[in-house]
Amino acid sequence: MTTTTRPAATGLTALASPVTIAGLELPNRFVMAPMTRFRSPGGVPTDEVAAYYRRRAGNGVGLIVTEGTLVGHPSASHETTVPRMTAGAAEEGWRKVTGAVHAAGGRIATQLWHLGSERRPVDGIPAWTPSGTTGTPEPASAAGSPPMRTMSTADIDAIVAAFAESARVAARAGFDAIEIHAAHGYLLDEFLWPATNRRTDAFGGSPARRAAFPAEVIRAVRGELPVIIRFSQFKERAYEARIADSPAELETILTTLADAGADVFHASQRRFWEPAFPGSRLNLAGWARKLTGRPSITVGSIGLTSDFPASRAMARLGEGLADGEFDLVAAGRILLGNPSWARLVTEGRPAEIRDYEKAHEDVYF
């Protein structure tokens, strides 16, 4: 799908300009990144969850990406307060959320999620993984974790079917797009990373084969709604990990996903301003756009001015948008402590933009 803009803009005005991505008309280029909040008892989003997302949409975030939402399979997670995308009560709860965001003038995508090896043993169900390994030494806190299950081809088919069913639920619940979580060391990303994917069948080995399972998921959800795929180099337990050591290897992985039907690439970096590979200024989102021709979302410590001064961050974002390096800008933690951040940025009111404070993450909703 193509990206259209109207009209050309630079700097902060570029962030505020409307854009059409994968057929989805957005009022601006701000995205709320997914952040788990543990406020959905029994997997069902509440009225409080709807109000939480509405506040951000009403304060200038054009596209909300929900917190990770579990697909309807027993292996997806052990968590009981993380939302699910299943028929019945959860679907009804999400319908309230999408209605609230739309009423505030925003658009909303659900992020579909399976924890893979991050699943814990509270219910005795083993963690489903590509090859029965986390790829890194297990921390002491993981002692007593359930045995890891190396997925069979039948297991792969079952998870693909679970993603497809959750996509159908999301479409009925009024979502505007679907994001597939294939980053940060969770199940789909574990297939992409050689350290966790040691398979010798059609789903392991070469970069294209490592991407085959995420590609099957994309094909299964394709047709319900526009498809965003979130990917990363780093993992939650391995910040130096890489799914691709060169642009050529990354191209093989991402074009496999694009050919399967990925409309947009959400490239997660710890710091958006860092080049993804030596010899080029391009960040990970820039490489995704260059290699696939598909729109991309940049994310990574945006708004956290202790890491990168706000004036330099805004200049870098403006340059990236003007140069076509990436199309959308996602912010995460700063929007927890300051839900009006996007609006204040576009209104040019830096004195009113408070830095993110760690204490706010757990107390502000």
Score class of each variant (00 low, 15 high):
8 A>P: 15
15 L>R: 02
16 A>Q: 10
19 V>A: 05
22 A>S: 13
30 F>R: 11
38 F>C: 09
40 S>M: 03
44 V>G: 01
46 T>L: 04
49 V>M: 15
50 A>G: 00
53 Y>W: 06
58 G>F: 04
68 G>C: 13
70 L>T: 05
77 S>H: 04
79 E>N: 13
79 E>G: 00
83 P>K: 09
83 P>Q: 05
83 P>F: 03
84 R>T: 14
88 G>N: 10
91 E>A: 14
94 W>Y: 12
97 V>C: 06
104 A>D: 11
105 G>Q: 09
108 I>Y: 03
108 I>L: 13
112 L>Y: 03
115 L>Q: 13
115 L>C: 07
120 R>E: 14
120 R>G: 09
122 V>K: 11
123 D>M: 03
125 I>A: 01
126 P>Y: 02
133 T>F: 03
142 A>R: 15
151 M>T: 12
151 M>D: 06
151 M>N: 06
153 T>Q: 14
154 A>M: 01
154 A>H: 11
155 D>I: 09
156 I>L: 13
159 I>R: 01
180 I>P: 02
184 H>E: 11
185 G>L: 04
193 W>C: 11
198 R>A: 12
200 T>W: 00
206 S>L: 08
206 S>N: 07
207 P>N: 07
207 P>H: 11
208 A>E: 15
211 A>H: 02
213 F>T: 06
218 I>V: 15
220 A>K: 06
226 P>H: 09
228 I>A: 10
228 I>P: 00
234 F>K: 02
244 A>G: 12
256 T>N: 07
257 L>E: 04
258 A>Y: 01
263 D>A: 08
267 A>T: 07
271 R>Y: 15
271 R>V: 00
273 W>M: 06
276 A>R: 08
278 P>D: 13
279 G>M: 10
281 R>F: 00
287 W>T: 04
291 L>G: 05
293 G>L: 08
299 V>R: 00
308 F>L: 12
312 R>S: 14
317 L>Q: 02
317 L>D: 03
318 G>D: 08
322 A>Y: 03
326 F>Y: 15
333 R>V: 04
337 G>A: 07
340 S>W: 08
343 R>Y: 06
348 G>K: 07
349 R>Y: 02
357 E>W: 05
359 A>G: 14
361 E>F: 15
363 V>M: 12
